[in-house]
C-alpha cells in the first residue's frame, strides 16, 4: 500500500503543481523495466485478484508517469533531461542483468528476469536521490514521495521476517536486494526525519 501511495502521491503532485521539477523520470523508467521483467507471469499464471490487479496498476501507472513527464504538457515542459542525467543504462541495467543471470536460483527466463528485477529495483532510487542532491532543496510533496518510496521496501523486510518465522519462507535474493534498497535511503530518511522534527524545509547536504 505504501508503494501504491507513493505512486498516487507523485501523480497528485504532478497534477496539482503541473511541474515535475525535482522528480527523476529516469527512476520511473527503471521501475517500468523492473515491473516488465517481474510481472511477465501476468500472462501465464494467476496468483490472486489482488496480485494481478496490483501488477496491472503498477505497470500502467508507471508508464503513465513517464508519459506525463516526457510527453504531456504542461508537466513535460518542466522536465529537464540534462539535470535528470544519471546514466542508469550502463550503471544499473548492465550490472542488474549480469547479477540476475549469475544469482538466479534456476536458469530459466522467468527466474533470471525476476532476479534481475530485484537487483534493478534495489538501486532504482539512485537517479532520484542524485537529482535531489543536485537541487538540495526538496519540495515537500517530493519529500513525502521519496520517503514512501523508501518506506515500502522496509515493510517488505518486516513481512519477510514474519514469513521466515511463521512459515520458514526463505528469499535470499529478495532479502539482500531489500536491504540494499532500504540502506540507500537511510541518509535521506535521516534528513527527512530531521526536517519533520524541527519543522523545517528538507535541505540535503
Amino acid at each position: 500500500m505504501l508503494h501504491l501511495m507513493s505512486i498516487l502521491l507523485l501523480l497528485w503532485k504532478l497534477k496539482k503543481s503541473k511541474s515535475c521539477v525535482g522528480i527523476s523520470c529516469r527512476m520511473q523508467e527503471c521501475y517500468a523495466i523492473v515491473f516488465c521483467l517481474r510481472y511477465l507471469d501476468l500472462f501465464y499464471q494467476f496468483i490472486s485478484v489482488y496480485n494481478t490487479a496490483m501488477k496491472v496498476v503498477f505497470i500502467s501507472s508507471t508508464f503513465y508517469l513517464i508519459f506525463l513527464m516526457r510527453f504531456q504538457p504542461p508537466v513535460s515542459a518542466t522536465y529537464d533531461r540534462t539535470a535528470d542525467s544519471f546514466p542508469y543504462e550502463q550503471y544499473l541495467l548492465g550490472p542488474a542483468a549480469v547479477l540476475g543471470f549469475i544469482s538466479a536460483e534456476e536458469w530459466s527466463i522467468p527466474e533470471i528476469f525476476w532476479t534481475a528485477s530485484i537487483w534493478l529495483e534495489s538501486v532504482s532510487i539512485l537517479p532520484q536521490l542524485i537529482l535531489l542532491q543536485q537541487l538540495r532543496e526538496v519540495e515537500n510533496l517530493t519529500a513525502e514521495f521519496v520517503a514512501t518510496m523508501g518506506a515500502y521496501r522496509f515493510f517488505y523486510i518486516l513481512n519477510w521476517i514474519y514469513r521466515y518465522f511463521a512459515e520458514g519462507y526463505v528469499n535470499w535474493i529478495g532479502w539482500l536486494g531489500g536491504i540494499v534498497q532500504t540502506g540507500l535511503y537511510v541518509d535521506f530518511f535521516y534528513y527527512y526525519a530531521m526536517s519533520k522534527w524541527y519543522g523545517q524545509k528538507l535541505v540535503l547536504p
Partner: peptide, 10 residues
C-alpha cells in the same frame, strides 16, 4: 527454459 519464476510477491 520457460518454467520457474513462481513468486507470490509483488
Amino acid at each position: 527454459l520457460w518454467e520457474g519464476g513462481e513468486h507470490d510477491e509483488l
